[in-house]
């Protein structure tokens, strides 16, 4: 069920565009923020709100890497593996996370705390290696900083 508060935010979104379909991505981001991921049920509801068949929602949800059609851990760790980060230690950062959490790209820890994802350039190449944790960027990482960061997340 979409709450009244969410509905109000959705209506605000609709006002921005001459065509309500344009609210697709902002709407899906909003629902994902509230529910953690886009379940088939959520996509059906989004379709109702946008007055579109569910397949239109599904094809968008599967196209964009930030939209998740599977459940995700409490903390999503997105590790940049593009060139600039790789040149300054990005691979070591990824290896360390894999070792410490015992998971690989796309996996979630059994306790549901962390999901690990490798991503392409986050637009923060001058302060690499970079890991995005949920919405926040953590930059200039090394193993010590990474351990401190992971310790702070539970």
């Amino acid at each position: 069920m979409i709450s009244d508060a969410t509905r109000a935010r959705i209506n605000e979104l609709f006002e921005r565009y001459p065509d309500r379909r344009s609210a697709m991505i902002p709407l899906l981001l909003l629902l994902q923020e509230e529910r953690g991921w886009l379940s088939p049920e959520t996509m059906r509801e989004a379709g109702e709100v946008l007055d579109l068949p569910p397949v239109r929602i599904y094809e968008v949800a599967t196209f964009y890497t930030m939209l998740r059609t599977r459940p995700c851990g409490k903390y999503l760790l997105q590790v940049c593996r593009n060139l600039s980060c790789s040149l300054v230690g990005g691979e070591g950062v990824l290896r360390h996370i894999e070792k410490r959490l015992g998971i690989h790209d796309g996996q979630t820890t059994p306790d549901g705390c962390f999901t690990l994802m490798t991503v392409e350039c986050l637009g923060s190449c001058g302060t690499g290696p970079v890991v995005q944790v949920n919405g926040d960027y953590h930059e200039n990482l090394d193993v010590a900083k990474l351990d401190k960061l992971l310790d702070s997340l539970t």
Partner: peptide, 8 residues
């Protein structure tokens, strides 16, 4: 208006 993308 600001319009956010979603990773692509």
């Amino acid at each position: 208006h600001v319009h956010r993308g979603a990773g692509a």
